[in-house]
Write a protein that binds this DNA or RNA. Sequence first.
DNA 1: AATGAATGAGCATTCATTCAT
DNA 2: TATGAATGAATGCTCATTCAT
Lengths: 215, 215, 215, 215
Amino acid sequence: MKTEYFKPIFLRLPPEKRQKIIDAAVEEFSRNGFDSANVNNIASKSGISVGSIYKYFDSKEHLYLSIVNHAVETLSNVLYDIIKGEEDLETRIRKIIRSIQTYTRKYVGLTKLYNEMATENHSGLTWKLVSDMENVTAGLYASMIKDAQGAGIVREDIDPKHFAFFMDNLFIMLQFSYACEYYKERMKLYVGEDVFDNDEMVEEQLMKFIKGLSS
Amino acid sequence: MKTEYFKPIFLRLPPEKRQKIIDAAVEEFSRNGFDSANVNNIASKSGISVGSIYKYFDSKEHLYLSIVNHAVETLSNVLYDIIKGEEDLETRIRKIIRSIQTYTRKYVGLTKLYNEMATENHSGLTWKLVSDMENVTAGLYASMIKDAQGAGIVREDIDPKHFAFFMDNLFIMLQFSYACEYYKERMKLYVGEDVFDNDEMVEEQLMKFIKGLSS
Amino acid sequence: MKTEYFKPIFLRLPPEKRQKIIDAAVEEFSRNGFDSANVNNIASKSGISVGSIYKYFDSKEHLYLSIVNHAVETLSNVLYDIIKGEEDLETRIRKIIRSIQTYTRKYVGLTKLYNEMATENHSGLTWKLVSDMENVTAGLYASMIKDAQGAGIVREDIDPKHFAFFMDNLFIMLQFSYACEYYKERMKLYVGEDVFDNDEMVEEQLMKFIKGLSS
Amino acid sequence: MKTEYFKPIFLRLPPEKRQKIIDAAVEEFSRNGFDSANVNNIASKSGISVGSIYKYFDSKEHLYLSIVNHAVETLSNVLYDIIKGEEDLETRIRKIIRSIQTYTRKYVGLTKLYNEMATENHSGLTWKLVSDMENVTAGLYASMIKDAQGAGIVREDIDPKHFAFFMDNLFIMLQFSYACEYYKERMKLYVGEDVFDNDEMVEEQLMKFIKGLSS
DNA sequence: AATGAATGAGCATTCATTCAT
DNA sequence: TATGAATGAATGCTCATTCAT
C-alpha cells in the first residue's frame, strides 16, 4: 500500500550517512526547488558519490519524493502528538501554535520543502504522498471541534469540517511565515519587525482570532 | 523607486502584442515554474522571436519578474477596489471572499504564479516587487478593523495588525485552494468533493469563522 | 510514406555544412558503432556545436538513422544504375562486381555502416529503413534471372528468388571484404595477401563461381 | 602462441559455474553488443558477484574476447567434424548446410556474436582470435575442392582458394540469415515468409547454386 | 527593429572498475 | 576467494542567451 521511493539498500545504510544525505537533499531542494536542485551537489554535500545516490534512489524525482515524504512525516508526527491529546480545545490549539513556533524553526528546510512541494510542478505525485497525512489531520481536527461543539465551547451552527479547514489554513500560513523568506517578510510587514521575538504575542493574538471577534 | 523589469521598448509595443507575450509567459511560468519554463516556448506561443523577447527583457528572470508584477497588480487591484469601499466590515469581507471565488477562477495562472513566486527560489527579488502592494493591503485591512473596533463590532483587545494578518492568511489560502492543484485536493479532502460547486456555503462558513466561535 | 529522420531545417543548410556533418557522423558511427559513437565528437568534427546537431536531429538515434539512410541510398543508387541496364546477365553481374570494387573503396565508411547496422542492436528500426531498397534489389535480381532462364542461359530448375538471394549474399560479403577490417583479413587469408591488387582476378573467379562449377 | 583472455583461476572453477558465466555473457553480448552489454548484469545473471567476474577476467574486453573465442570454437568444431569427413564434395556441402540450419538455431546467441564481432569496433583483437580457425577452415575447404577437381567433379579452371572463399561467404550469410534479425527479415523478403519452415528447399537450392547454373 | 540559427555550459544518469570486508 | 557497495569519468541532451542578417 505505502509506496516507498527509496531502494531497500538505503535503509541498510548507517544512520548518520542516511541523515547526511537527507540533510543535503532537504537543503538543496528547499533552496532551489526540484528543477534547479543539482543531484551532483547533493552528492558532494553528503560526502558520497553520485553513483551512490543512484544506488539508493532510482532518479532525482524519487530522491525528491523520499525527501518530501520524510519532511511530511516529521512535521505531521509533531502535530499528531499534540492533536491526539485529551486536553480541551483551547489548550490543544495553543499547544499547536507553540509547536509550530518551535519546530518550524528547528526544521526550516522541511517547511520550505512543504511550500515548494505544494507548488504546481509535481503536485500530482506529491499529493498522493501527502494525502494520507492530511487526511488524518483533517479528521482529527474535525472531531476535536465536534467535541468542542458538544461541550458548548464552539457555536453549533458552524460546520466542523470547514472550521478545521480554515484553522489548518492559519497553521500552514503560520509555518510558512516562520520558515520561508517571502512569508517572513510579509509577516514583519503586517505585524511589525519584531514579531519573531514575540512568540507569546502571536500565540495570544492567533488564539483570540480563532476564538472569535465578538465577546 | 518602483523598479521595472522590462525595457522601455516593451511599452511601445502594440497592446495586443504585449498581451500575447504576457499571456504566453503567465501560461508557461505558472504551468512549469521559473526553472522549467522555457523562454523559446514563450516566444513561439507569443508568435514572436526569441530575439525580440530579449529586446524587451534583459533576461529570463526579468521577464519572470515583469510577469509576476503584472499578476500582483491585477490581483491586488481587484482587492483594492473592494477594501477601499465604505461598507461595514462584514459586507466588505463577504465581498472579498466572493471576489476571490470569481477572480481566482478567472486568473488561475496569475494565482498559481503568486504561489510559485512565494517559493524560496527568487523570493529576494519578488518580495521587493510585491511588498508595496502587500503594504497597502496590510494598512487598509488594519484601518478597516480599527474602524470596526471603534464601532464596537470587533472586540477591543485584539490587535488590528494581527487580525489583518490572520485574515489575509485565510484569503491567501483560499486563493490557492481555488487555483493550485495541491491545495484544491486538500480543500476537497477537508470539506468534501463538491466544495467547488458551493461558493455560498464557503462564504458563509468562512464568514462565521472570522466572526468567531462563541456566540 | 517515406519517414525522414532529420528535421526540415537540416535540408536548408548549406550543402557543404550538411556534408561535413554526414561525413563526421559516418566516420564516428562506422568506427565505433551506435553506442560508442559520441555525439559531441561528431559535432566538433563537423565544426558545429552539439546544440546545432540537436536542432537538425531529434536524438542520437535519429541522427544515426538519417546517416544509415543516406548510406543505403548512396550504395543502392550505384547498384540500381547497373541492374536496370539492358545487357545480358553475365555483363551485368560483371558490372556489379566491378562497381562493388570501385565504390566500396570510395565509400568505405558507408559500407562499414551497413555492416554495423545489420547487427542486432537496432535492427528493428533499420530494417524498416532498408527494406524498401532491398525489396527493389531483390525484385530486380529475380526478374533479371528469370529473363536469363527464358533465354536458356540459366538452368530452368533453379528458383530465381533463391538464386537472387545467394547472389546478393555473395555481393554483400564482397562489399564487407573490401571495407571491413575483419572481412579484409579473412579474404586475404582465403585467397592471398595480394587480393586487393587483383580486382580482375576476383571478378573472373566470382563470375566463374556464379556461372557454375561443372562444364 | 594462443592467447587466452581469461585468468587461470577461471579454469579452476566448477564447470557449471563457468558455464553459467558463459551463458549469461553470450546472452548479454549477443543481445546488446559489446558497448551496451553490462558487466553487472552478466554477473547477476550468472549468480555471482561483479568482483568475481573481475577475478576471472581482467576487463570487460577480455571477458568479451573469451566469450567470442568460446563461440568460435563451438561453431567451428561443428563445421570441422563435417569437413574432415571422407565423403564426396556434394555430400559434404549438404552436410554443412544442414548443420548450419541445425546448429545456428541451437546457438543463436553465438552466431549473433560472430556477426557482432566482425563489426569494426574490436576487429583488431577479434581477428587475432579467430584467424587460426578461419585458417584451418580455409585450408580444409580448399583441399576438399582440389580433390574434387582431381576427381573431375569441379572444373579445372577455377581457383580452389577463391572457390572456398565464395562458398564460405555463402555459408556465413546463411548463418546470419538464420540467427540475426536483420538478415532473417532480408531472407524472408528475398525468398518468402515461409523460408524458415523449408530447410530442404533451401538446402536444395543452395546446392544447385553452388553446383552451377548451366547444365 | 526583428529574426531565428548557433552556441556551449550545465546536469541527470550510467557503468566499468576497485577495494574494504 | 568472494562479495557488492562505492566511485566518478563520461555522455546525451537542454535551453538561456547572442548576433549576423
